[in-house]
């Protein structure tokens, strides 16, 4: 069978799958699905905290004098059976004193019974380094999605409790979820 520019031979694909190799780069896996949030669409953990929006729909703390914790929650809608490979968060960090701290959580409860939420930290990351725009990976181990018992979300912390924040010097602009659809065989990859 001739190899065309947009078709992968079954034998080669089978070898790659068997070896556990990802045929594409780590940031763009085969059969990817993506879900993105604008920074400003994060849900505050406290409705009294003021957030403002920059020109790119990013979010930053609107009252630097407020010392309550500034945290935004980004719930993830992922279908059952999918795998969440990682989260990529983009923004701006021009602060010498603060970083954007990021955490990827899974919270689980029994399927058909009451129970205290079991919150598990899956991955973390933070902005750092050269002032300016940043792009950070959060969580790099694949997480199978189990929506019958668990929910998934990203928390972005602009400042911790009892700490003033730095206004527009620290902005969260995008939270992008990288997922994989398990229905690999029947995807369009095999069609011309």
């Amino acid at each position: 069978m001739p190899i065309t520019s947009n078709r992968v031979p079954l034998s080669l694909l089978a070898l790659l799958l068997a070896a556990g190799a990802d045929p594409a780069s780590a940031d763009a896996p085969a059969n990817p699905e993506y879900a993105s949030h604008f920074g400003i669409l994060g849900r505050p953990t406290n409705s009294a905290v003021v957030y403002r929006r920059d020109g790119y729909a990013g979010a930053y703390c609107g009252d630097p004098a407020d010392t309550s914790a500034k945290r935004l929650i980004y719930p993830i809608d992922a279908p059952g059976g999918f795998t969440i490979d990682h989260i990529r968060v983009s923004g701006v960090d021009q602060s010498a004193t603060h970083d954007l701290n990021l955490k990827f959580f899974k919270v689980c409860q029994p399927f058909l019974a009451a129970g205290t939420p079991d919150i598990q930290l899956i991955g973390s990351g933070h902005s750092a380094g050269t002032d300016g725009t940043f792009s950070v990976l959060v969580g790099t181990s694949s997480q199978p999605v189990m929506p019958e018992t668990c929910a998934y979300y990203v928390q972005a912390e602009l400042s911790a409790a009892d700490t003033a924040c730095v206004g527009p010097d620290l902005v969260v602009r995008e939270v992008r979820v990288h997922m994989r659809d398990p229905d690999l065989i029947f995807k369009d990859s095999f069609e011309s």
Binding site: R43, T45, I73, P75, D77, P79, G80, V107, P147, E148, A151, Y153
Partner: peptide
């Protein structure tokens, strides 16, 4: 055949 969609309290 079951599928799910969840909304956290914060949503």
């Amino acid at each position: 055949s079951a599928r799910f969609q969840t909304r956290l309290g914060v949503s």
